[in-house]
């Protein structure tokens, strides 16, 4: 895939960091405000996709990235499952039990395990959307060759 002009590249560089931070904000405030893991994860993936679109990349490097993000995706789901299974040990044998202290209402660190679940979902959605995007790009490039 070809990269774009220097103006687009610079603006994408500047913006993608901000978008990434906004995604993290949405994920970490998932238990307090609308949004959460899925919405924030989609924003994270958006910032990564923006960079790939602006800078372009050759197929070989993209394939390496795809392998990485696909492992990341599986690992995030496993992490989610581990959090839920850990509840069996921590919460008197109950699956999905909220075993951490609940904290104070409307504080960032509150609601027990739910923010952790949100973070795992965020990583998983970001990695999955990015993997799908990369798979489509690689497929198109391979067709061209």
């Amino acid at each position: 895939m070809q990269g774009m002009s220097i103006i687009v590249k610079k603006v994408a560089q500047l913006l993608s960091g901000l978008i990434f931070m906004y995604g993290i904000y949405i994920i970490t405030h998932g238990h307090l405000t609308p949004g959460g893991g899925f919405a924030g994860g989609a924003i994270l993936a958006g910032s990564l996709i923006l960079l790939v679109l602006a800078f372009g990349s050759d197929v070989m490097r993209l394939q390496k990235r795809e392998a990485g993000s696909s492992i990341m995706e599986s690992a995030a789901i496993l992490g989610f499952l581990l959090l839920a299974v850990a509840a069996i040990i921590a919460g008197a044998g109950i699956f999905f039990y909220n075993y951490l202290p609940k904290g104070q209402l409307f504080h960032l660190v509150s609601a027990g395990v739910i923010p952790l679940y949100n973070i795992m979902v965020g990583i998983e959605v970001a990695a999955a959307l990015f993997t799908i995007f990369l798979a489509l790009v690689i497929y198109k490039e391979e067709l061209k060759q």
Binding site: S70, A75, I77, L78, L81
Partner: peptide
């Protein structure tokens, strides 16, 4: 089975 499904790709 869910854990197995996501351990396998890693």
């Amino acid at each position: 089975p869910l854990a197995a499904a996501f351990l396998i790709p890693i």
